[in-house]
Design a binder for these strands. Structure first.
Lengths: 310, 310
DNA sequence: GTTGCTCATAAATCCAGCTTATGCCCTCAT
DNA sequence: ATGAGGGCATAAGCTGGATTTATGAGCAAC
């Protein structure tokens, strides 16, 4: 009776989750219906594919593929596993698209400057879509705050920018490509999570919160909105990154106010719960921006068209 | 000038994305501020950690951490990469939680039966949250259609079930834990994507669509809703899985009607666009269910409480 | 100055996974 | 029937990447 129970923290994730190559192979098998064909597509030999699938099945303790002399089909469990695997692969594709842009090729055809929030949460998805639609478009990404983005564009060092905020920076034209909203969140165990009535603005203002540091975009919006209600109370914690603030809130340190872009996953899995509030507008626009008069063309226009919802 | 451009399909993802162990290590470095501490936490030696980070930087072509004699901090690029990496790791955690449940331990304390859709898209997140709140709860997952879920519960072979549909199956009590909605989608290039007016129910009924096979939950809901408008036209394609239907729609084969749970990613990256329609209610409830009178207790109650939104 | 933390480098080792080379099974067509 | 072809499994040998141990060097605090 060692610690071989169905528990959780018995080792690094990498020992319990197959590597990307194996997951991609599984997706190929699901799509092509044959280990051999999947192997060929993946650029390995058939025995290698056979072995990889087998070791994946051993690792998970579940049969994934039903082999037959005329092909392979997924088992019921295999269908589920394959769908879960697809999530990992999609996240990896976003990572890859982002990382490639970060690398900053010399011969880049499209130079994008974006605020941190957008670069973190939205841009990778857009880059994946752009890659699907216009393969071979080399993209460079520069991340910085709104002022830095504006500066790059004015200096001609970027072709297209993305910023969040209430208005487009001076000297730049723009188009709204989406919205963001700050939400009040707590861990599910916090008393606020059991309230039925919305939090009043004044109560929110009077409560010590977990916040980003003064100067961050999130903090500025909140400061402005609560100014009419006496301004923010002394923060409970003041942290340098959205991630740190999120982690503190998840850990139950107290209520926080964060961008809904940053906490989708946490809300879905109920590591955080959203607390309704009233009398406040914590929306902000996400804008694509470009130098006044220089309407985007070429690759920049391609990317822009991806971001504009129907 | 080989194909070493900033393109896309120059090899398997695994060659351009670090493995899970490296990504976890990066997250640990970000959290702990030191390669050595991160190494210890990850269960490897300091030189191994140093090498892993270095090879990751070489792979991505970007510096990620700034080393100093009294610790390491992330670079600007490192912050972005770390956030993107976190997405992959979270997807891997969901995979792991799901896979472990699929394995079906003997000594399981909680046996869950769920419909495919819920097992695919929602359950892994719930299991991650459950693991965080009640570590050591061993969960077994059985996936099947609504009838199979009901059967398991009545036979006492499962403690808690999840089904989608308009009403709880006979003999079972239930509670709504969420909603699902069928949406009309096309590839962005499809003429419908440029329409401004919603699709009328009659027009939708008359159009050949990419659909799941007759008998699937999705198909049933759509059939029922369109019965009043002359019923569904002959399908354009009839496919055996949601994934296949999605792939066909993304490929531009035509319009499809799919669960919004299944296409979140595709909508966000605009590989698919949602087409508004009118005069139809394509909502369906997601319910937790249990044998009449046997209100869930223990681990089942823990899981149930996770799924009920505020 | 010494202790303690940080990280980098070097050399030896070890293991995991690949490829090549087979063999068996099944189906289909001749 | 009987061969041809596609599909998968097994065995053996090899290669390379990643790890560990051992050590050195830089900086800070006492």
């Amino acid at each position: 009776m060692s610690n071989e129970d169905g528990g959780s923290l018995r080792g690094p994730l990498a020992h319990r989750v197959p590597d990307l190559a194996a997951l991609e192979l599984l997706l190929a098998v699901a799509r092509l219906g044959s280990l051999g064909r999947a192997a060929r597509e993946t650029g390995i030999t058939q025995p290698a594919a056979s072995g990889r699938i087998r070791s994946m099945e051993r690792m998970l303790g579940v049969g994934l593929v039903e082999r037959s002399p005329r092909g392979s089909r997924l088992t019921d469990a295999g269908v589920l596993v394959t769908d879960w695997a697809r999530r990992i692969v999609e996240a990896a594709e976003a990572f890859d698209a982002g990382a490639q842009a970060l690398r900053g090729q010399r011969d880049s055809r499209l130079r994008v400057a974006a605020s941190m929030t957008i670069a973190e949460y939205l841009l990778p998805g857009w880059l994946v879509a752009l890659r699907a639609r216009r393969p071979g478009t080399a993209v460079t990404l520069l991340a910085g705050n709104s002022a830095a983005v504006a500066e790059r564009l004015r200096a001609g060092e970027a072709d297209l920018g993305f910023v969040e905020g209430l208005a487009a920076p001076a000297g730049l034209d723009g188009a709204v490509v989406g919205g963001d909203r700050l939400v009040v969140v707590t861990a599910p165990a916090h008393p606020w999570a059991r309230r039925r009535a919305p939090i009043a603005a004044a109560e929110l203002a009077a409560t010590p919160l977990i916040l980003r540091e003064r100067g961050s975009g999130t903090r500025q919006v909140l400061d402005a909105a609560l100014a009419a209600y006496g301004g923010l109370a002394e923060p409970l914690l003041e942290l340098a990154s959205t991630t740190a603030a999120k982690a503190a809130a998840v850990g139950g340190a107290g209520p926080s106010v964060l961008s809904e872009l940053a906490i989708g996953e946490e809300l879905a899995s109920r590591r955080l719960v959203e607390i309704p509030f009233e009398d406040l507008d914590l929306h902000r626009s996400l804008r694509a921006v470009w130098p006044t008069g220089h309407r985007p063309t070429g690759p920049a226009r391609d990317l822009l068209s991806l971001t504009q919802g129907p």
